[in-house]
Amino acid sequence: MPATQRDESNLLDAGVLARIRGMDLLARTVVEGFVLGLHRSPFRGFSVEFAEYRPYVPGDDIKHIDWRVYARTDRHYLKLYEEETNLSCQLVLDASASMGDTPAGPVSKLGYATRLCACLAYFMTRQRDAVGLTIFDRKVRQTLPARLRSSHLQRILSELESCTAGAATDLAAPLHQAAEVMERSGMIMLVSDFLADLDGLEIALQHLRHVGHDLIAFQILSPDEREFPFEGDVEFTDPETGLVRRVSGRSVRDTYRSALAAHQERLATILAGARVDHVLIGTDEPLQVALAAYLHRRSLRPS
């Protein structure tokens, strides 16, 4: 169940977040609020740090039965531990020029994406997962390998805070590079608007999957890009290619939506083929949506 439907009172909308300056504070606010909204932590597993007992039910692995308790109580209990993993997560952030445009809304796509990455990084660190950051546009501009240290988190947040939009997008090459950088299998979270040429993306994703990474693709689109609400005559300029189109908003709306739907369908096909979770988020939606998606994917990953 998405977080947005779980407890709306704990969610901060994009407008509020846009007014929070520091990435640390922002991530803390979002994540703490998100965690408080969870009634039961789903991250109970079988690790080294004891957490609690629970009654045995058929199907449970009998190796986790605490025989000492059985001896005392003549009942079967499983011994549960706090999960303590070293899952390695890499945030791959698209900082191309198309992410920087702000036709409408409180924040740009890049601003929303950096906040999203900050929240994810904070949340993963809190969950004791190692987290790294890759920023790219046409090529990889910055790479921070995954680490599980608070100082590393601060560096990630600092990089995110200073991130600006760059040149045109090339999705394939940075992903190939990320696959090479991550030494062991982990989780890669690709944050982009995917408004770029999708050729080569499928191969890059297959490359990542081949290495053994789990992937989540967060697609950030502004409401204008999704709805195309423009009226009257508008001259649009593509921030990456410089392409100029002078159109009447109402007359091209259907055409635009059809073209966008075709693009999205192709993207979904590519992502589905690579077994990549596709999470479409609008810049007007709460950040918790992305956290919920991460948790969902994390829960499916075998311990």
């Binding site: 198309s98 992410m99 445009d101 036709p103 796509k109 608007d193 408004l195 502004s222 204008d224 890009e225 195309f228 423009f230 508008v234 001259e235 649009f236 300029t237 593509d238 921030p239 990456e240 290619t241 392409l243 100029v244 189109r245 055409t255 635009y256 073209a259 966008l260 693009h263």
Partner: peptide
């Protein structure tokens, strides 16, 4: 406007 969806 600078618009990412101009390509469409």
């Amino acid at each position: 406007l600078t618009f990412g969806g101009t390509r469409f």
